[in-house]
Design a protein around this nucleic acid. Structure first.
Lengths: 208, 208
DNA sequence: GGAAGTTAATCAAACGATTGATTAATTTTG
DNA sequence: CAAAATTAATCAATCGTTTGATTAACTTCC
């Protein structure tokens, strides 16, 4: 037997993330985390100090690999429009492969309380917004794009993606979309990416 | 002294809504509601049966007046594009005048649990989406609009509005937007309305 | 019109259950 | 054996809810 048994520390993180996503931070008890992970209750405080420590560790792990992928795009020698298309695709990939976490992030972000985590998430988002900001402004300055409200364009791109994964959508008039189904997930992701890429292309190049 | 004392029932609803918005449903205790409202703890169960009963009552009251305003628009004898512009404005007005509630709605909606309320909110949103759906499809059929992905347009409209009020935005590079300031609230609202109206106009009429 | 009856509203106190956290003892590991 | 990991038991605090009693206002009846 090599590493048949995963270490309890990771088991706690996995279980906690799953539960936080499903029932929220306040709605999840340490006993639930203990049960779900198979670890004794005391292990939570042993490894992470507190319930909030678990939450913070989860957020830090997730936020960590966030900026890296997108930064590379901005250094490519491609047009502003192509950059924008790539960013949209990159965002969509990230969000659609971690829908539960993305929901949780937005949920906990909308609480006035918990200021340290709030700031951390806010800063991570701000960094991404700045990247988008840079790309669009470059496009305007080099004449690729018309003169538009940059911040609102960003709100449209991020808002559309978030709305599709969070709001309850229906694909036809009766059947609800199930994004946990990999097939549907892929279809909807490509659909929203195509829509957004098309939308920004038409809009940004319309009033040059 | 006429009716100096406001009704306790309403005081509980007001206090609970404020607290639910600030700290979430699970994060708010009945004792906090009692303290904030000035009503005895037992009054919560006396009037509403349970803490969840308070929540349900709040949601019902808010959702109630939701469809009425928008329905009227669809019966106007104006073009599809004008209808769309009016709906965008109507939505924005509603959301921007109840930002805290709108945040709370989205937050509690993103929980997998609490199925009855979830369904209620979902249905209310679906009704609004159907209205938008109808307007855009009419526009496509009578040749006013090009052939676009209707559901994604709706996601863009609702997503943009939600993103602006929920995500942490900055107006310049350092100062954060404060939507609780009536002046800023009005400015940002008009800005997002102008952006969305402009966006849908350009996009929907671009490929006729 | 005033005593008797009825009602809704309000209260302090307590209920059992659950919360996050800690202890001290035990087992596992290197 | 010593350090690290894990356990069951327990902690005080807080949770949502319920209780029984009291107040105040309104109805009914003679």
């Amino acid at each position: 037997m090599k590493t048949e048994k995963v270490d309890k520390k990771q088991a706690i993180l996995d279980a906690a993330e799953k539960l936080f996503c499903e029932t929220g931070y306040e709605g999840t008890s340490t006993r639930q985390i203990s049960k779900e992970s198979g670890a004794n209750m005391a292990m939570i405080n042993y490894y992470f100090g507190s319930k909030e420590g678990v939450f913070i560790e989860i957020m830090n792990n997730r936020i960590e690999g966030f900026a890296s992928q997108l930064k590379i795009i901005n250094e490519d020698k491609i047009s502003s429009l192509e950059k924008l298309h790539k960013v949209i695709e990159g965002y969509a990939n990230r969000i659609f492969s971690n829908i539960a976490f993305h929901k949780m992030m937005h949920r906990e972000l909308s609480l006035t309380q918990r200021p340290d985590m709030y700031d951390k998430i806010k800063n991570a988002m701000s960094r991404n917004m700045s990247l988008l900001d840079r790309i669009i402004i470059d496009g305007i300055e080099d004449g690729s794009f018309g003169n538009v409200d940059v911040r609102m364009i960003i709100a449209t791109i991020m808002g559309t993606l978030t709305n599709v994964v969070i709001a309850p959508h229906k694909i036809s008039n009766d059947k609800a979309i199930d994004l946990s189904n990999p097939k549907e997930n892929k279809i909807i992701k490509e659909r929203v990416v195509a829509h957004l890429q098309n939308l920004v292309t038409v809009y940004l190049t319309s009033k040059k």
